[in-house]
Design a binder for these strands. Structure first.
Lengths: 182, 182, 182, 182
DNA sequence: AATGAATGAGTATTCATTCAT
DNA sequence: GATGAATGAATACTCATTCAT
């Protein structure tokens, strides 16, 4: 799966053939179909693992932090750090977004991720720390910021995740209309 | 080109065959190759037209507005309105981002679009209206917000562009650290 | 036809499209089909003209020469000179030999050409100037010599026709078992 | 390869489709591309094998014959016998001569074959058995005789190789200006 | 468990030919 | 006489998937 993820990330789903994947591993085609029903299922499996892994990292990072705003910040930073460390898997997530066959599975995972953020946002709104707006939209806005900045700065321009994360966090927290913790 | 854009948007580039495009138009396969050198060139042509059109709309919308912050806001709103009216073309732009063959052409167009925004941001920073940060990153952050909210709310959930644009604008302007015009 | 002959000679029959022929002439496709029923018929027409022209040249060259051996020699030399001057048409003749659709037409012309030579050979045999062998075979042997030497020396190596013709004639006349005219 | 050679010989290279080749063998199209990179490569492979085989036969036939003139004669006879037994492969050689894509490969093989003959001719000239002329031209003249007589008499008219070989040999040896071995 | 030869539907593209203008 | 847009059958080639070994 790691090898396949690499190939998919580099060349896209269609441009990567099963032949190429197994050749790169030095195994026969039969063994591929022993473990996976189809190329599509392989992709979905990698995708699910990626989403699961990202979520676990975020939960670890947030730990038992009490401040919801701080939790949001940790989530954003973890996203970018994870994306930097897992280029291939993150590329797969982008890939899945533009393919009819995968967009469903992708969304299921993303809904969960967004729900996590929404929880923190709601809490912060309740305590007056964040301007009163639709928490769902706010969460998605942050997802958009982090995703795009990752793509442009970390992937395309090769900048370090944490320096760009500083700007992303500043933009997002301001965008949420944060009032400093009293 | 309109019909092809529709098919590409719906099914993706690879899943849409030349056969299908011409069949849907009730014409022969040869006529396709009379007008386009290849399926790839067709896609690129549609992509370029889409990017050109979006940019023209933005320039029209901004007109000769003097306030840079207001120009940014108009740009954001126009993006979302255009995306709502041109679902297919916007989908194509998303598609292009995940395909090696198109990402180059896409980026060329996007660099121009971002440069437009960066100009306004720089001006606003110079006049102290926006927090002093890398204008390039700020512009990209806004692109991320608008793109993602469009995808999720306008496309997937079918909400009207202007109501979601209000939230997007609020998030972005706050994210820029705007100080109200004195 | 001259232009088409050139293209066919250079690229072969299949590799030369009707589009290319008319484009090179700056005319539309319609006019092509006004003058010719098909690409195949065009080829056959050029072929027939080429064979006719070669034969006329040979008859002119031979004139009313009385000596049959001398007539043979003149025929051989004229063949090579003509091939040098009409590279394209000669190439077409070679091309026709390997294509089912043209080999029939080609053979009809070649049979006539060979018959001309056979006449001289028979006469020379009758007068004891040439060894008594099947005149048909002898004629074909000479056709083989001239054709192949033309291909190799005149076309591929660009040598002048008359110098190579000297050797070809010597080989052929000796091959016929000529006894010097008494 | 045998089946493909047959189809190519009968219909020509372009008129023979990969589909037809595999259909005739009762196998799928994929298996063709498992063994060959392309239709072109298949043709080249058959061509090379044919040329290699012909040369081996000639070398076997000549053995350690001491007389260069006799070696030439054996070479000529072997050529015609081989052509009779390998109609398809010989046709392919003719086909290759008129196709830009194959003429290079063809020539490489033919240069070797001619070089073999030239060696014998040179030796015979040195010992005064053959008239002093360019041995290269003489060799090519014989190639022309044998090739053409094969085409006309063995292939088109179905005559036995050895009877026509007698005439070809007589013509060629006379053409070389042979003086009987003293 | 594993191989890799075999399948065949599917793809992009070409090109001789037609015909409304 | 002439144009060139339109046709569609045909072509070489790919690749996810199967299955006898």
């Amino acid at each position: 799966m790691a090898h396949a993820a690499e190939r998919f990330a580099e060349q896209g789903y269609h441009a990567t053939s099963v032949s190429e994947i197994v050749r790169g591993l030095g195994v026969g085609k039969g063994v591929f179909y022993w473990y996976f029903d189809s190329k599509e299922q392989l992709f979905l499996e990698i995708l699910r693992d990626a989403q699961t892994d990202l979520r676990r990292r975020q939960q670890q990072a947030i730990g038992d932090e009490a401040d919801p705003v701080r939790r949001i910040e940790l989530g954003l930073r973890t996203s970018m750090a994870w994306a930097e460390a897992h280029r291939d898997h993150n590329k797969l997530i982008e890939l899945a977004a533009t393919d009819r066959n995968f967009v469903g599975a992708l969304r299921r995972g993303q809904d969960i991720a967004v729900a996590d953020v929404v929880k923190h946002v709601k809490e912060a709104i309740a305590s007056g720390r964040i301007r009163d707006a639709d928490p769902d939209v706010l969460a998605h806005a942050m997802v958009g910021v982090v995703g795009h900045l990752t793509r442009v700065y970390i992937y395309d321009r090769g900048e370090p995740a944490d320096s760009i994360a500083d700007v992303a966090v500043a933009f997002c927290l301001d965008g949420l209309g944060i009032t400093p913790a009293s």
